[in-house]
């Protein structure tokens, strides 16, 4: 099963909408609740990252009988130093993002924690692509 969602940069009121749709689909597929939670949290963190930092993004989802693969590709400023971005507590988020309850520098580490594989690629000035996989068993 394949799904695709557009994510608008800066639109905090809509942030989480795509993750919510994926969560509903996984529920219908009777995936175990603890696994759904890991996926939902990882996708939400990724979606908030696009809203907080990029101009626009696309979430592409592929669900197989054994796992879920998701790519979140954005057009935006990119991440100059991925190792630094992966450190807990490091953040370049604006005050506005922090007022919304995010931007504490814990999103990427939390995505890693909740997924079975995570790959992050970025070209400064162009954008960032995150690919994650979570196994169902």
């Amino acid at each position: 099963m394949k799904m695709q969602f557009d994510i608008a940069g800066g639109d905090f009121s809509a942030a989480g909408g795509a993750s919510s749709e994926v969560k509903k689909t996984l529920k219908q597929l009777n995936i175990p609740p603890a696994t759904i939670r890991r996926i939902a949290v990882a996708l939400y963190e990724a979606e908030v990252n696009v809203v907080a930092h990029a101009y626009s993004g696309v979430m592409s989802v592929e669900i197989s009988p054994t796992n879920i693969w998701v790519q979140i590709a954005d057009k935006g400023p990119g991440i100059p130093n991925i190792d630094k971005a992966m450190e807990e507590g490091f953040s370049t988020a604006s005050d506005h993002v922090r007022q919304m309850g995010f931007g504490a520098g814990m999103g990427l580490p939390n995505i890693k924690k909740n997924t079975d594989s995570m790959e992050l690629k970025s070209v400064p000035g162009e954008g960032t692509t995150l690919e994650i996989t979570v196994n169902f068993n």
Binding site: F12, A15, S19, K23, V41, L43, E45, G101
Partner: peptide, 28 residues
């Protein structure tokens, strides 16, 4: 960001942040 890091079943979130993202965070 902190709320999303830990979880247990049947937990309550107590917060002063009343935004859509508060409810999205709870949902997800």
């Amino acid at each position: 960001s902190d709320v999303l890091r830990w979880h247990c079943d049947n937990m309550i979130l107590i917060t002063g942040l009343a935004t859509i993202q508060t409810i999205r965070t709870a949902e997800l």
